[in-house]
Design a protein around this nucleic acid. Sequence first.
DNA 1: ACCTTCTAGTTGACGCGTCATCTAACTAGC
DNA 2: GCTAGTTAGATGACGCGTCAACTAGAAGGT
Lengths: 159, 159
Amino acid sequence: MNDTDPGAVPWLSADEQRSWRAFVRLHMKLTARMAADLQAHSGLSSSDFEVLVALTDVPEGRVRFQDLAKGIDWEQSRLSHQIRRMAKRDLVAREECEEDGRGAYVAISAHGRAVIEAAAPKHVATVRRLVLDALTPEEFAELGRLSAKVTDQIERTRP
Amino acid sequence: MNDTDPGAVPWLSADEQRSWRAFVRLHMKLTARMAADLQAHSGLSSSDFEVLVALTDVPEGRVRFQDLAKGIDWEQSRLSHQIRRMAKRDLVAREECEEDGRGAYVAISAHGRAVIEAAAPKHVATVRRLVLDALTPEEFAELGRLSAKVTDQIERTRP
DNA sequence: ACCTTCTAGTTGACGCGTCATCTAACTAGC
DNA sequence: GCTAGTTAGATGACGCGTCAACTAGAAGGT
């Protein structure tokens, strides 16, 4: 925990540390605010939102569990729990799968569709207000570019 | 959910959407990987780590609950739960506060100190490997600058 | 047909974070 | 001193996410 500790793995320089902390701080603040906003305006958690968006992205409004999990990069068990809770609130419904007796579809409900269609524009507005409006278009593009670059590195560096 | 929907709040352009999704994806991947890494190498959660870092940042190694909560920007109740769990694992200890009968200190234990001192260099190495190494110094500085800019905007825009 | 093996999804336990609520102790005004 | 209001922190309930079993159906070889 000491920068001058000899023989230690090099700590971050003051500049690096400042950048890193700014970055971490942004993560914290942004996720917290987006979640609060979504909850306040639409009664949805970020997870609810993510699932509903994925379901409205396919025309039929229903997807196999497995495919949905892959699509949003979730563990399958997490999805199972989430869908159970969402079904209880009538945002989605489980449906049997005729082709494969083990499988199941998760389908968006009419209510779920209404909720997500009301929530989405507010969500976009929040993204605009909190992020897009803070940056020039060039800066925002750069942020995206740098993000992609780091993500690539993360995926290249296998655990 | 439709870009061409007239009268709707403007959705993001294709470019904007690509940048935004890259950014969100980075958040997801990075937090997941960092947490997994920390857990694997040191048996600590990100929360554990954050608390221990805050505690080693003060020379006495003990801080009042309230101050600690403010320092790491946590809800007081969250901290209370977290400290209870950490105390059970002998990473920290509660200590009474003589000056204020309501108050309490949370103090890092010898074991906690050993754990964090082993964990910190590995954590820094991971940050370097996953993020710093993906970018030029200029790019990393730019990432920090943009992060700070957006964070400012978020804090300016009060909920 | 039978038996392994794989795959789809579920479930229960447990750690985590939030919210609302509670207790105890400090502070101010009288 | 007493009382009202505030502050420090704890606690219980509940939703969430992970991990490790577990169930049931599909596939493929014999």
